[in-house]
Simulated assay, not measured.
Amino acid sequence: MNSEIGSDMELIATNFLLKTAASPPWEDGSKIAYVETGRQALQLISDLLWDSGQRTLLLPSFLCESMLSPFQGRDWDFQFVEMNPDLTLSLDSLRAIAAAVDGNFVALVALYFGRVPDSEFVQAILELQSLGGVVIDDETHRVLSPGRSRADISIASLRKTLPVGDGAYLRGKIGDLASRVFPARQNGRWEAMRAKSDSMVGGDSAASKAFFRDANSVLDASRTAHAPDMRTLESLRTFDYEQLAQARVRNAAVLARILDGEKSIRIVNKPTPGSVPSHLVVEVHDPQLMQESMAASGVFCPIHWPRPSMLEPEIPWQSNILSIPIDHRYTPEQMTDVGRALLSVTKS
């Protein structure tokens, strides 16, 4: 590869900026609060719901550790919802579990990898609410995608899909949670992003990676909610979200065309009309080996996710997937190179 693909984002290119500031697409007039990370957002919600008397939590059986950790430390009754082979929630399982509890429950739902809520998903949310459930929708992978699920509370971590140093939102029936957010602080990620931008034109790439490691460790360790860096809040009103979405849709389509039909690779989230993929997710025989081989070519592909340590062993886990970066930083030509590299690894 002529340049690195994947890993932490650098500063955004000016051609993806608006000339006039505007509200981001997830702001719809509902009450909203911003914090540094999705983990902090979920911690605030966990505290709020526990204080209100909630004790039962329905959540996907395929999820990342940071979705679970804010609810640990208290005696929540975890009820894990089955997943379909394409890593969507089994709505039948969701309905069955909700019907079996006493009507006083919380359901954390998510449409992974940029999928949009369809009518069946929205109907399932309404059914949970009619049973007395409080529904939290994790929108992290679809902040650029249209559609709302009508959940009681929506949250998203923004640094996973957007070029910001930090940031997450809570939207909906969040009460006075904004009053529990501490002032912003320096966390170093904006400086790391600038260092990476500099490294791409001759700077020290090792230094920028060290900056990211240090900054990420500060953010990931924090349970106390802080407001995001002011640079984040300002940037969120200057991004051209339509262009950012179009780049992802285009890149996913290019990569999917190259991989489609390859027997050793199954595309988990094939592009569909209206969706804006966070990644192109593929099922492969040995994702760790594929990840290492692609990294040697300069393509850094995350694995979503390592199995959370507290997950019961009898709960099945899809451990053979790899997520390919397709974001706005890359051209169709680079996506073509990535696709060819993937095919080359599968044949080696």
Results as ranks from 00 to 15, higher is better:
residue 8 D to C: 13
residue 10 E to N: 12
residue 10 E to I: 14
residue 13 A to Y: 07
residue 16 F to D: 02
residue 19 K to A: 12
residue 21 A to G: 05
residue 28 D to K: 07
residue 31 K to F: 07
residue 33 A to P: 06
residue 33 A to K: 06
residue 42 L to I: 14
residue 47 D to Q: 09
residue 47 D to M: 06
residue 51 D to W: 07
residue 52 S to G: 12
residue 55 R to C: 11
residue 57 L to R: 10
residue 58 L to T: 08
residue 62 F to P: 07
residue 67 M to H: 08
residue 68 L to S: 15
residue 69 S to M: 08
residue 72 Q to W: 08
residue 77 D to A: 10
residue 81 V to A: 05
residue 82 E to N: 13
residue 82 E to H: 11
residue 85 P to C: 08
residue 88 T to V: 04
residue 93 S to V: 07
residue 93 S to H: 06
residue 110 A to L: 04
residue 111 L to V: 04
residue 113 F to I: 04
residue 114 G to I: 01
residue 122 V to M: 11
residue 123 Q to K: 13
residue 124 A to D: 05
residue 130 S to G: 06
residue 131 L to S: 04
residue 136 I to C: 10
residue 138 D to W: 09
residue 140 T to S: 05
residue 144 L to G: 03
residue 145 S to P: 11
residue 146 P to R: 14
residue 151 A to I: 10
residue 152 D to C: 08
residue 158 L to S: 00
residue 160 K to G: 00
residue 161 T to P: 02
residue 170 L to P: 01
residue 179 S to L: 03
residue 190 W to V: 09
residue 198 D to T: 13
residue 200 M to K: 15
residue 205 S to I: 09
residue 210 A to D: 13
residue 213 R to G: 14
residue 217 S to F: 04
residue 224 T to G: 05
residue 230 M to Y: 02
residue 232 T to S: 01
residue 232 T to M: 03
residue 233 L to W: 01
residue 242 E to C: 13
residue 242 E to F: 10
residue 253 A to W: 02
residue 254 V to Y: 01
residue 255 L to C: 00
residue 256 A to P: 02
residue 260 D to F: 08
residue 260 D to E: 11
residue 260 D to Q: 13
residue 262 E to V: 11
residue 269 N to G: 01
residue 275 S to Y: 07
residue 275 S to L: 10
residue 277 P to K: 01
residue 282 V to I: 07
residue 286 D to C: 03
residue 288 Q to M: 12
residue 293 S to W: 12
residue 293 S to I: 09
residue 300 F to C: 05
residue 320 N to L: 04
residue 324 I to W: 00
residue 327 D to H: 10
residue 328 H to Q: 15
residue 335 M to E: 05
residue 336 T to N: 04
residue 340 R to C: 09
residue 340 R to P: 00
residue 342 L to C: 01
residue 348 S to T: 05
